[in-house]
Simulated scan of single mutants.
Amino acid sequence: MPPLRHRLLILVTAVLLLAGLGTGMVLHAAARADRANQPRSGGPAVGTGRLTLDQKDRLTFVNAAAGPHRTAVAAVPAGDPGGGRIASNLKCARFYAAAGTGVCLQSNPGVLKQSNRALLLDVDLRTRRTFPLAGAPSRARVSPSGRFAAWTVFVSGESYASAYFSTRTSILDTRTMRLTPSLETFSIVRDGKAYHASDINFWGVTFASDDDTFYATLNTGNRTYLVRGSLSRRTVTTLIQNVECPSLSPDGTRVAFKKRVLAGATLWREYVLDLSTLHETALAERHSVDDQATWLDNKTVAYALPTEGKVAGSDLWSVPADGTGTPRLLIAGASSPAPL
């Protein structure tokens, strides 16, 4: 048997070797994790910086590019949307902002169940109030004045394509903090008559500039309708069928929307509806658009499409609102656009 001193030396050497091996494994794992959090080669440059909702000529969005800032609210110059983006510390599943007011819908996995909530944000992206959500985030909007915020969640099912789904749409007065938990409490007028049904769902609110009028989708009897609503009268009135996820133009004259082009299939085309004539114009985008579009200005509509070759991921595209032209890539790795 070796002397005690030799045995101690062997033991110490073995411990040091094991410690070195363990440290090497930890560093290797950390390096792999760090590489996984880096943008893809040739991907967008994402940096951190101060992002506020009163910055002019900026386009905000949820960053979908790979890296540590994935799902963070970010911004680019409106005139250079393909340039480097500045990311905030705020992470959202859906986001929208107007007039210095923002709304962020978050979905956080939990031990027993998923936690969903809506954050009402001030101009510095600080949380003013938090509201629990009844389901998974789907749509978010803020009125042009910033007074009202709306959000839609899936209470059951994961999308409009599910065999069975139920949505809940809420509207918040950001001045009084009065929350309307569900638009289903509003009175419905369909074809000039009061309408009641047990299968009513609303989604995709968009606000006019008068802080009273809004538009949304009503689903009932396996049909979808564009409805015009009044917040003060708590009523909605149907206008036209086969309209989903409406988005009102800045001048208030038109609505961009997705139209189901094949009954029973999850295929939608993007259209623009003239509210004075109810004339529909098909836009140049030929892919199926499952999104609530955003008007960048009175001539251009932006929307998200899945990134090619990726199971999860989206890019923002834009197209002329008059049906001419061709779609162009606006921001790679992005969703939920909101022009400031």
Rank of each mutant, 00 (worst) to 15 (best):
L9I: 14
L11V: 14
L11C: 14
A14G: 13
L16I: 15
G22C: 13
A29E: 12
A30D: 15
A36W: 13
R50N: 08
R50T: 10
T52R: 09
T60Y: 15
G67L: 11
H69M: 12
T71N: 15
A72Y: 12
A74Q: 12
G79M: 09
P81Q: 10
G84T: 14
I86A: 13
N89D: 15
Q106N: 10
Q106V: 08
P109N: 05
L112E: 11
K113S: 10
Q114A: 04
S115A: 13
R126M: 13
L133R: 03
L133T: 09
A140L: 00
R141P: 03
R147T: 06
F148V: 06
W151H: 06
W151K: 05
T152Q: 02
V155C: 10
G157L: 04
E158C: 08
E158H: 12
Y160Q: 11
Y160P: 06
Y160W: 14
S162D: 15
S162W: 07
S166V: 08
D173K: 05
M177S: 11
E184N: 14
T185V: 10
S187K: 13
I188Y: 02
V189H: 08
V189A: 07
K193V: 09
A197D: 06
A197S: 04
V205K: 01
A208F: 00
F214V: 03
A216H: 03
N222P: 00
L226P: 00
S230V: 06
S230L: 07
L231P: 01
V236L: 06
Q241F: 01
N242I: 07
S249L: 08
S249G: 11
F257K: 00
F257W: 03
V261G: 02
A265T: 11
L273I: 07
E280V: 02
L283Y: 02
R286H: 05
R286P: 01
R286E: 06
D291Y: 01
T294C: 03
W295V: 00
W295A: 03
L296W: 03
L305W: 03
P306W: 02
K310S: 06
V311S: 06
G313H: 00
G313K: 00
L316T: 04
S318R: 02
T326H: 11
I331L: 11
I331Q: 05
S336N: 09
A338D: 03
L340A: 10
